[in-house]
């Protein structure tokens, strides 16, 4: 039996990598005494599937995971037991049965909230507009020892600029994630800097949600 869960990765644990977080979940399932299924073979792995990984240092309230169990467990009970066994910062927000839902690998878009300091809202809005008007946005991605040049213009869906608290500027972004290509919010900020007079001081980056975007429609995973 499979269950799909939406979870948050909050402040204290935002610095742990995706792989380390997977291990933290495996241990939490064991502490919760939930009948998590494992793969066969010499080194069995827990049957957990995750949505596209979150960069280290970013918090999120819209992460997803599918967990496979060898025995049926009521969804609400699984959520309750898991939440009492998770370390601070990881928390299941919503749970549902997996049947009838698209696989997490189909997720192709993410929404982010970004807070930056030291600029006027108008200046950032103008820079965002300029960036979005570019036909091409070439960035260099370092993969192992090779440097690859990628055009990320199609991966920046929108940047919405508002004024935030305390003179900060608040940006809402929708960016592509997943196998079809992706760009991270800090890469976008680096590009935005090219249209601003000075370096950006990032106060906070938060992933709001992940979903499948098809023909302009948002289809949530859960």
């Amino acid at each position: 039996m499979k269950l799909r869960m939406r979870y948050e990765k909050a402040d204290p644990v935002k610095y742990i990598s995706h792989l380390d977080m997977v291990k933290a979940f495996e241990r939490a399932f064991r502490r919760a005494k939930l009948p998590l299924a494992f793969s066969e073979g010499f080194t069995p792995h827990p049957r957990l599937t995750f949505a596209p990984a979150l960069s280290v240092g970013i918090t999120s309230s819209g992460e997803y995971m599918d967990a496979d169990f060898y025995e049926n467990v009521p969804a609400s009970e699984a959520m309750c037991r898991l939440n009492s066994s998770l370390p601070e910062g990881l928390r299941i927000l919503k749970i549902g049965i997996f049947d009838g839902k698209y696989p997490l690998s189909k997720i192709n878009a993410a929404s982010y909230s970004v807070t930056i300091a030291g600029f006027l809202q108008e200046d950032v809005a103008r820079a965002a507009k300029e960036l979005l008007n570019q036909k091409q946005v070439i960035i260099e991605k370092v993969l192992k020892d090779k440097v690859k040049r990628v055009d990320v213009a199609p991966f920046i869906h929108c940047i919405d600029v508002k004024s935030g608290e305390g003179g900060n500027v608040f940006l809402g972004m929708e960016l592509a994630v997943g196998q079809g290509g992706s760009v991270s919010p800090d890469m976008v900020l680096k590009q935005l800097e090219r249209y601003l007079p000075k370096e950006i001081t990032v106060k906070y980056i938060h992933r709001e949600d992940l979903y499948l975007k098809q023909d302009g429609l948002i289809i949530p995973p859960l």
Partner: peptide
């Protein structure tokens, strides 16, 4: 960075 955050289970 996780070396320095503490707060482990």
């Amino acid at each position: 960075p996780a070396r320095y955050i503490g707060n482990e289970y």
